[in-house]
Write a protein that binds this DNA or RNA. Structure first.
Lengths: 221, 221
DNA sequence: CAACCAACTGAACGTTTGTTTAGTATTCTG
DNA sequence: CAGAATACTAAACAAACGTTCAGTTGGTTG
């Protein structure tokens, strides 16, 4: 909606400050006055540009969603990412944007649902297409559900970036951090971590405990 | 610290209301008055019991951490959980407790770090011991780092419970939800999802791009 | 029964909150 | 260069905030 050219305006500066502060102190915990002070303007100007504090929140959401989609689209076009997919590309976003993204996902807001659904949709396509191309062996059950579980796993690393950064000793919001964690992720995904027999047995046990996918509406115990 | 017996007091009721509201509206977004109203007491009583709003926050943290550790200890003693470990047992906690846990993990607080480290510590032991017992084939590099990545993945499902609940059609904060997602998780962990050759190639590419684990302190780019 | 202590409330406190309003610079437009 | 729109501020507003304080209740103890 807003072009990149006019994106260095005072309005943009205010928004960028908000994007930085909201994840840190929460929405209610971030005051309009604090944002204004950080942006070097009066509190009234913040509301002049965004109507209300909630309006500023919406503008931040929109911007971050826009940037995320843009980054993914670009990554897909240039092919500059590898399996398991779209999320890896996200890490090319600026750090505050990533922090905001992780924060939003945890709020359970409508924006969070939108972003999650977007990721799931894309990974679903990658699963189905990948299967045809031989990149994917076999997904369990519904590809959309398989994608959702996969996306949740990947985003877990994003949402817990602070903890992972400490554990791995590399900033997880940078490409370097993603690279550092990738071998560990791949070790898990490759099936080389857990013993095959134990897993197969566990899988069988779980599937026996569960009703068949068709048999719905059973009385609870 | 506090026994289970005296845990149905007014004090406990106030704390339980706080545990329910903090994840929903955030710390700053939850008012002492709202908590008092929900607990059916005066705002002054909240501060009488907990000293301050921040004191209430600490009490909630302590309680949830205590319950989490207790649940894990019990699960380990009875052996009532399977790989990949300690996190699965956590799902036996009450739903508000789980929501609070997920929220805290996202705040990056000291409590979050404590809980994460606790999980990582336990999973690390499981990895090392599991390898001796043949349950674990081979972890990549440092077992603690491998555990951290594993824990982050698993907790991703917890933190994104709202989204996963929608995607899978089962409440992810119940044992039923965990069971429903398990086959999808296992499909990923078993190595049956992604093509082996593609993964091996990706792994090799990444390891080539990275310096050897020993060679530290290289100039950036 | 007196003395005490913890549980609990109503009312008020000073502060901070988001927002409004009236007005001043600055920039665009014909 | 007049005029209109836009960018921006200082000051003030009512509402809501966390917290305090003085006081009441109800059970326990000597």
């Amino acid at each position: 909606m807003r072009s990149v050219v006019e994106d260095l305006t005072t309005r943009a500066r205010i928004r960028d400050v908000a994007i930085e502060r909201f994840p840190k102190d929460g929405f209610a915990g971030t005051t309009v006055r604090a944002i204004a002070k950080n942006a070097g303007v009066s509190p009234a100007l913040v509301l002049h540009h965004f109507g209300s504090k909630e309006g500023l929140h919406r503008a931040c959401d929109e911007y971050v969603v826009h940037m995320t989609m843009e980054m993914k689209r670009e990554a897909i076009e240039t092919g500059a990412y590898r399996e398991p997919g779209a999320i890896a590309a996200t890490y090319q976003l600026a750090e505050p944007t990533l922090r905001y993204l992780a924060w939003t996902l945890g709020t359970g807001s409508e924006t969070a649902a939108r972003i999650f659904a977007e990721f799931v949709g894309e990974v679903t396509v990658q699963l189905v297409q990948g299967k045809e191309q031989g990149l994917i062996n076999e997904y369990h059950g519904d590809p959309q559900k398989q994608a959702a579980v996969l996306v949740a796993m990947q985003l877990g690393g994003l949402m817990l970036h602070d903890q992972l950064t400490r554990a791995l000793g590399v900033d997880m919001l940078t490409a370097e951090g993603l690279m550092a964690s990738a071998p560990y992720t791949l070790q898990i995904f490759s099936g080389e971590l857990f013993n095959r027999e134990v897993m197969a047995q566990t899988k069988q046990t779980i599937e026996q405990l569960q009703p068949a996918p068709d048999a719905k509406q059973r009385a609870t115990k």
